[in-house]
Simulated scan of single mutants.
Amino acid sequence: MQVVDLSHPVRTGMQVFPGDPSVELRSAATVAADGFAVAQLHLGSHTGTHLDAPLHTVQDGTAVDAMPLEALMGPARIVSLPGSAANTVLSWKDVSGQLAGLLPGTIVLFSTGWSRHFNTPAYLEHPTFDAEIAERLVAAGVRLVGVDTLNPDPTPGPAEPGQAQGGTFLPFHDVFLGSGGGIVENLTNLDEVPWPEPWFSALPLRLEGLDGSPVRAVAFKP
Protein backbone atom coordinates (compact mmCIF):
# COMPACT_ATOMS: atom_id res chain seq x y z
CA MET A 1 0.00 0.00 0.00
CA GLN A 2 1.25 3.50 -0.87
CA VAL A 3 0.38 6.24 1.66
CA VAL A 4 0.83 10.04 1.66
CA ASP A 5 0.38 11.87 4.95
CA LEU A 6 -1.84 14.94 4.41
CA SER A 7 -1.64 16.19 8.01
CA HIS A 8 0.31 19.02 9.62
CA PRO A 9 2.25 17.98 12.73
CA VAL A 10 0.72 19.17 16.00
CA ARG A 11 3.26 21.13 18.03
CA THR A 12 3.41 23.81 20.69
CA GLY A 13 2.79 27.29 19.33
CA MET A 14 1.48 26.19 15.94
CA GLN A 15 -0.87 28.43 13.99
CA VAL A 16 -4.57 28.26 14.83
CA PHE A 17 -7.71 30.04 13.68
CA PRO A 18 -7.70 33.58 15.15
CA GLY A 19 -9.17 33.42 18.65
CA ASP A 20 -8.98 29.63 18.99
CA PRO A 21 -7.14 28.07 21.96
CA SER A 22 -3.37 28.08 21.62
CA VAL A 23 -1.54 24.77 21.38
CA GLU A 24 0.75 23.64 24.18
CA LEU A 25 2.20 20.15 24.56
CA ARG A 26 4.09 19.55 27.78
CA SER A 27 5.51 16.62 29.68
CA ALA A 28 3.42 15.29 32.58
CA ALA A 29 5.67 12.32 33.33
CA THR A 30 9.04 11.09 32.07
CA VAL A 31 10.70 7.71 31.85
CA ALA A 32 13.69 9.03 33.80
CA ALA A 33 11.62 10.33 36.71
CA ASP A 34 8.52 8.15 36.66
CA GLY A 35 9.32 5.03 34.67
CA PHE A 36 6.89 6.00 31.90
CA ALA A 37 6.19 8.98 29.64
CA VAL A 38 2.89 10.89 29.49
CA ALA A 39 2.21 14.22 27.79
CA GLN A 40 -0.32 16.88 28.71
CA LEU A 41 -2.15 18.46 25.75
CA HIS A 42 -3.80 21.88 25.56
CA LEU A 43 -5.48 22.51 22.23
CA GLY A 44 -8.80 23.35 20.60
CA SER A 45 -11.06 20.96 18.76
CA HIS A 46 -10.05 22.60 15.45
CA THR A 47 -6.29 22.32 15.87
CA GLY A 48 -4.13 21.56 12.85
CA THR A 49 -5.57 19.24 10.23
CA HIS A 50 -9.07 18.68 11.57
CA LEU A 51 -12.68 17.77 10.82
CA ASP A 52 -15.55 20.23 11.15
CA ALA A 53 -18.73 18.41 12.19
CA PRO A 54 -22.15 19.95 11.43
CA LEU A 55 -22.38 21.02 15.09
CA HIS A 56 -19.56 23.49 14.40
CA THR A 57 -21.97 25.94 12.73
CA VAL A 58 -25.41 24.30 12.85
CA GLN A 59 -27.54 24.59 15.99
CA ASP A 60 -28.22 21.04 17.22
CA GLY A 61 -26.20 19.65 14.31
CA THR A 62 -24.47 16.28 14.34
CA ALA A 63 -21.51 16.03 16.73
CA VAL A 64 -18.16 14.69 15.58
CA ASP A 65 -18.54 11.37 17.42
CA ALA A 66 -21.91 10.76 15.76
CA MET A 67 -20.71 11.26 12.17
CA PRO A 68 -20.79 7.98 10.20
CA LEU A 69 -17.24 6.70 9.78
CA GLU A 70 -18.02 5.40 6.30
CA ALA A 71 -18.55 9.01 5.18
CA LEU A 72 -15.05 9.96 6.34
CA MET A 73 -13.12 7.53 4.16
CA GLY A 74 -13.38 6.41 0.57
CA PRO A 75 -12.53 7.33 -3.02
CA ALA A 76 -11.47 10.95 -3.51
CA ARG A 77 -11.12 13.46 -6.31
CA ILE A 78 -8.28 15.99 -5.97
CA VAL A 79 -9.07 19.31 -7.66
CA SER A 80 -5.78 21.02 -8.49
CA LEU A 81 -5.86 24.83 -8.34
CA PRO A 82 -2.19 25.89 -8.42
CA GLY A 83 -1.40 29.56 -8.52
CA SER A 84 -4.52 30.62 -6.62
CA ALA A 85 -3.87 34.17 -5.44
CA ALA A 86 -4.32 35.57 -1.96
CA ASN A 87 -7.95 36.25 -1.03
CA THR A 88 -9.18 34.95 -4.39
CA VAL A 89 -12.79 33.72 -4.40
CA LEU A 90 -12.87 30.53 -6.44
CA SER A 91 -16.10 29.93 -8.32
CA TRP A 92 -17.87 26.85 -9.64
CA LYS A 93 -16.50 27.70 -13.09
CA ASP A 94 -12.95 27.44 -11.71
CA VAL A 95 -13.44 23.90 -10.42
CA SER A 96 -16.22 22.32 -12.49
CA GLY A 97 -13.92 21.06 -15.25
CA GLN A 98 -12.18 18.73 -12.78
CA LEU A 99 -15.41 17.42 -11.28
CA ALA A 100 -17.02 15.87 -14.36
CA GLY A 101 -18.54 12.45 -13.75
CA LEU A 102 -18.43 12.83 -9.98
CA LEU A 103 -20.12 9.88 -8.29
CA PRO A 104 -22.20 10.22 -5.09
CA GLY A 105 -20.09 9.59 -2.02
CA THR A 106 -16.85 10.75 -3.63
CA ILE A 107 -14.69 12.87 -1.32
CA VAL A 108 -13.56 16.13 -2.94
CA LEU A 109 -10.20 17.64 -1.94
CA PHE A 110 -9.17 21.11 -3.13
CA SER A 111 -5.43 21.60 -3.65
CA THR A 112 -4.48 25.29 -3.90
CA GLY A 113 -0.89 24.95 -2.70
CA TRP A 114 -1.66 27.38 0.13
CA SER A 115 -0.43 24.96 2.78
CA ARG A 116 3.09 26.18 2.00
CA HIS A 117 2.17 29.32 3.97
CA PHE A 118 1.16 27.43 7.12
CA ASN A 119 2.50 29.05 10.32
CA THR A 120 2.96 32.43 8.59
CA PRO A 121 0.70 35.53 8.47
CA ALA A 122 0.11 34.87 4.75
CA TYR A 123 -1.82 31.72 5.64
CA LEU A 124 -4.73 33.90 6.80
CA GLU A 125 -5.02 35.41 3.30
CA HIS A 126 -5.91 32.10 1.68
CA PRO A 127 -8.17 31.60 -1.36
CA THR A 128 -11.82 30.95 -0.54
CA PHE A 129 -14.61 28.96 -2.17
CA ASP A 130 -17.91 30.36 -3.34
CA ALA A 131 -20.99 28.86 -1.68
CA GLU A 132 -22.23 27.67 -5.10
CA ILE A 133 -19.45 25.08 -5.01
CA ALA A 134 -20.85 23.72 -1.76
CA GLU A 135 -24.36 23.70 -3.23
CA ARG A 136 -23.25 21.81 -6.34
CA LEU A 137 -21.27 19.27 -4.33
CA VAL A 138 -24.17 18.61 -1.98
CA ALA A 139 -26.47 18.14 -4.99
CA ALA A 140 -23.97 15.63 -6.44
CA GLY A 141 -24.06 13.54 -3.26
CA VAL A 142 -20.71 14.62 -1.80
CA ARG A 143 -20.63 14.26 2.00
CA LEU A 144 -17.02 15.20 2.76
CA VAL A 145 -14.85 17.98 1.35
CA GLY A 146 -11.30 18.98 2.22
CA VAL A 147 -9.18 22.09 1.69
CA ASP A 148 -5.46 22.81 2.09
CA THR A 149 -6.32 26.18 3.66
CA LEU A 150 -7.42 27.37 7.08
CA ASN A 151 -11.00 27.74 5.92
CA PRO A 152 -13.10 27.43 2.75
CA ASP A 153 -14.66 30.75 3.82
CA PRO A 154 -12.79 34.02 4.54
CA THR A 155 -10.75 34.05 7.75
CA PRO A 156 -10.72 37.18 9.93
CA GLY A 157 -7.37 38.73 10.79
CA PRO A 158 -5.75 38.46 14.23
CA ALA A 159 -7.44 41.68 15.37
CA GLU A 160 -10.90 40.20 14.75
CA PRO A 161 -11.06 36.93 16.67
CA GLY A 162 -14.42 35.23 16.45
CA GLN A 163 -15.88 37.66 13.91
CA ALA A 164 -16.55 34.86 11.42
CA GLN A 165 -18.69 32.93 13.87
CA GLY A 166 -21.83 34.97 13.30
CA GLY A 167 -22.74 33.04 10.15
CA THR A 168 -22.58 35.77 7.51
CA PHE A 169 -18.88 35.04 6.98
CA LEU A 170 -19.38 31.29 6.68
CA PRO A 171 -21.55 30.70 3.58
CA PHE A 172 -19.66 27.57 2.47
CA HIS A 173 -19.89 26.11 5.98
CA ASP A 174 -23.55 27.02 6.24
CA VAL A 175 -24.40 25.12 3.06
CA PHE A 176 -22.15 22.10 3.45
CA LEU A 177 -22.40 21.50 7.19
CA GLY A 178 -26.07 22.42 6.97
CA SER A 179 -26.53 19.44 4.65
CA GLY A 180 -25.02 17.12 7.27
CA GLY A 181 -21.63 16.88 5.59
CA GLY A 182 -18.15 17.39 7.01
CA ILE A 183 -15.25 19.69 6.13
CA VAL A 184 -11.58 18.80 6.60
CA GLU A 185 -9.37 21.88 6.91
CA ASN A 186 -5.60 22.48 6.94
CA LEU A 187 -4.67 19.61 4.64
CA THR A 188 -1.14 19.55 3.25
CA ASN A 189 0.94 17.59 0.70
CA LEU A 190 -1.95 17.13 -1.71
CA ASP A 191 0.42 17.85 -4.58
CA GLU A 192 2.49 14.83 -3.50
CA VAL A 193 -0.26 12.32 -4.27
CA PRO A 194 1.06 10.72 -7.48
CA TRP A 195 -1.95 8.65 -8.53
CA PRO A 196 -5.41 9.72 -9.71
CA GLU A 197 -8.54 8.99 -7.69
CA PRO A 198 -6.81 8.13 -4.38
CA TRP A 199 -8.58 6.71 -1.38
CA PHE A 200 -8.77 9.15 1.51
CA SER A 201 -9.28 8.80 5.25
CA ALA A 202 -9.71 11.48 7.93
CA LEU A 203 -10.89 9.79 11.12
CA PRO A 204 -11.51 12.01 14.18
CA LEU A 205 -11.07 11.23 17.83
CA ARG A 206 -14.32 10.02 19.39
CA LEU A 207 -14.89 13.25 21.32
CA GLU A 208 -18.40 12.93 22.68
CA GLY A 209 -20.77 15.73 21.75
CA LEU A 210 -18.10 18.03 20.32
CA ASP A 211 -18.01 20.17 17.17
CA GLY A 212 -14.79 18.89 15.62
CA SER A 213 -11.56 16.99 16.11
CA PRO A 214 -7.99 16.83 14.87
CA VAL A 215 -7.52 14.02 12.34
CA ARG A 216 -4.67 12.09 10.77
CA ALA A 217 -5.61 12.63 7.13
CA VAL A 218 -4.02 10.30 4.58
CA ALA A 219 -4.31 9.50 0.90
CA PHE A 220 -3.54 5.94 -0.06
CA LYS A 221 -3.49 3.49 -2.94
CA PRO A 222 -4.56 0.00 -1.81
Rank of each mutant, 00 (worst) to 15 (best):
G146Y: 11
N119V: 00
P18M: 06
T57V: 08
F176L: 05
G146E: 06
L144V: 14
Q163M: 08
V10M: 13
F118M: 04
S84M: 00
Q165C: 03
L170E: 14
A33C: 06
R216F: 13
A32M: 13
A219V: 04
A76D: 12
L144E: 05
V3P: 05
T12G: 06
G97R: 09
L187A: 01
A219I: 07
R136D: 04
S45H: 14
A131F: 11
V184P: 02
V184R: 04
P104D: 02
A86L: 13
H42A: 03
V215K: 04
G178N: 09
L137H: 12
T62F: 05
N151M: 08
G166Y: 10
T12C: 07
P154F: 13
G181I: 07
E160K: 13
D65L: 00
T112N: 02
D191P: 00
G212F: 08
L137E: 13
Q98L: 04
A85S: 08
P156T: 03
F129G: 10
A100D: 12
T62D: 10
R77C: 09
S84F: 02
G162P: 14
G167S: 04
F172C: 10
H173L: 08
I183R: 04
G101M: 13
H126P: 03
Q15E: 11
G19Y: 08
P152S: 11
I133A: 01
F36R: 01
T49P: 06
T88C: 06
L25P: 01
A134C: 08
T30Q: 14
D52E: 15
H173K: 07
S80K: 00
V23K: 01
A202E: 04
V89N: 07
G167D: 07
Q98K: 02
L43E: 09
Q2W: 03
T112H: 01
P161F: 05
E185N: 12
V95E: 05
P75V: 08
A28R: 09
V31T: 12
S91M: 09
F118A: 07
V95T: 03
P152D: 05
R26Y: 11
V58I: 15
G182R: 02
L43Q: 14
S27F: 11
G44L: 03
H42N: 11
L25V: 15
A85W: 08
D148K: 00
R26P: 01
L81Q: 03
T57L: 08
L55N: 02
A134F: 09
F172K: 07
P198F: 10
L69S: 09
E197G: 00
G97D: 12
Q2M: 13
N151R: 11
G167Y: 11
D60R: 01
G61D: 10
A76F: 15
P161G: 06
L81G: 00
P161N: 01
M67F: 14
N119A: 12
D148V: 06
V95S: 03
L109A: 04
L72I: 07
M67S: 02
G48R: 03
V64Q: 03
F118E: 07
A140Y: 14
V184T: 00
Q165T: 13
S27H: 03
I107H: 14
